[in-house]
């Protein structure tokens, strides 16, 4: 059964909320394992995704840990020291910095896997369709850009081959020049051709109607409110809360998008049905998001800090169990039909 793009976005947001609201390495590790399991399940076995993901994960963990150990010299548990006379490298290397770096790496792996999964389950065109009517030209241009990428890859390959058959071998940076110029010019030529084809098929980025004054005023007004609210929020001396003013600004922008969208005379061919599975996935995503945002029992364990002296992180069974809801789509969707293309 199909899952609506909005439901997948809700699932993505819940995953991002989990990964950004906690620094508890145990919870993040659990989320990573869940997401890797998810990815393996939805990927055709022929692509051997597990090996690729593990290799990628290992390199990210190594890089983030080593980098953090070099940058951060705080922490009480010294693993080893290098003489301070060595510029940049000299000093203490601590277990706390290692744990902090590892946690960063785990968060990065989680986020990357989340987006990889989304990329596999939702077509980019489905995402583009969600762009509001007010941004119709932006949506079309994005669609074209997406079509452009594979075309440019093909063209790059053709140019690389064309230069090879003229005896060109890519040894130095200068040797790449014959590839870049035809690629750039070819890309521009193709962009012109697509623009011409779109114009011939009735596409226009400009509206014939004159924009009324109040509509023109909505954008600057909305932005002023948001900036003002933000300044008030930053200021600790003023007793007024800027949050409400930011909300008013956002509301004004929403009204602008709604009015502008209504004026765009365009219809949409593709329609995505909202299914029962989509409802369940959205509800579980909401539940997970709320659990990691609201102060409920176990919430304190999410905020883990290895500095100044590393300690074993606490683990909230409740939050741990809730992260399992990220697997809800695979239980509800049943068997995955792997796209052999």
């Amino acid at each position: 059964m199909n899952v609506h793009t909005y439901a997948w976005l809700a699932w993505l947001i819940s995953g991002l909320v989990v990964l950004t609201t906690t620094r508890n390495p145990l919870i993040i590790l659990l989320v990573d394992l869940i997401l890797i399991l998810f990815q393996v399940w939805i990927t055709p076995p022929s692509r051997k995704i597990l090996g690729t993901t593990l290799r990628f994960g290992l390199s990210v963990l190594t890089l983030s840990t080593v980098l953090n150990m070099f940058i951060s010299r705080f922490g009480e548990t010294i693993l080893f020291s290098l003489p301070t006379k060595i510029p940049l490298l000299g000093g203490n290397y601590t277990l706390e910095a290692l744990v902090y770096g590892l946690t960063n790496g785990l968060i990065l792996i989680g986020m990357f896997t989340l987006f990889m999964i989304l990329n596999q389950v939702v077509s980019v065109h489905s995402l583009v369709r969600l762009i509001p009517q007010a941004f119709h030209p932006v949506a079309v241009v994005t669609t074209i850009a997406l079509t452009f990428i594979p075309a440019s890859q093909k063209q790059f390959q053709a140019i690389r081959e064309a230069q090879a058959i003229r005896g060109q071998q890519l040894k130095k940076l200068r040797d790449w020049l014959p590839l870049i110029i035809p690629l750039l010019i070819g890309g521009l030529e193709r962009a012109m051709q697509i623009a011409e084809a779109m114009t011939a098929r009735g596409f226009t980025a400009q509206s014939d109607h004159k924009t009324p004054w109040f509509e023109k005023a909505l954008l600057p007004l909305g932005l002023i409110f948001i900036i003002l609210g933000w300044i008030l929020e930053m200021s600790t001396q003023l007793p007024i809360s800027g949050l409400w003013i930011i909300l008013i600004g956002l509301l004004l922008l929403l009204i602008l998008f709604f009015i502008s969208g209504k004026r765009v005379k365009k219809s949409t061919y593709a329609q995505e049905p909202w299914t029962q599975i989509s409802t369940w996935i959205s509800l579980f995503a909401l539940l997970l998001t709320m659990a990691f945002l609201i102060n409920i029992p176990g919430y304190q364990s999410l905020a883990y800090e290895p500095y100044p002296k590393v300690q074993l992180p606490g683990f909230s069974i409740f939050h741990g169990l809730l992260t399992l809801t990220l697997l809800v789509p695979i239980f509800l969707m049943g068997e995955v039909k792997h796209d052999q293309d």
Partner: peptide, 17 residues
């Protein structure tokens, strides 16, 4: 080079949209 979208039916629908 005149195709705007990647699926046949969506491509045919483009001008109607």
């Amino acid at each position: 080079n005149q195709f705007v979208v990647d699926i046949v039916e969506d491509e045919i629908a483009f001008s109607m949209e």
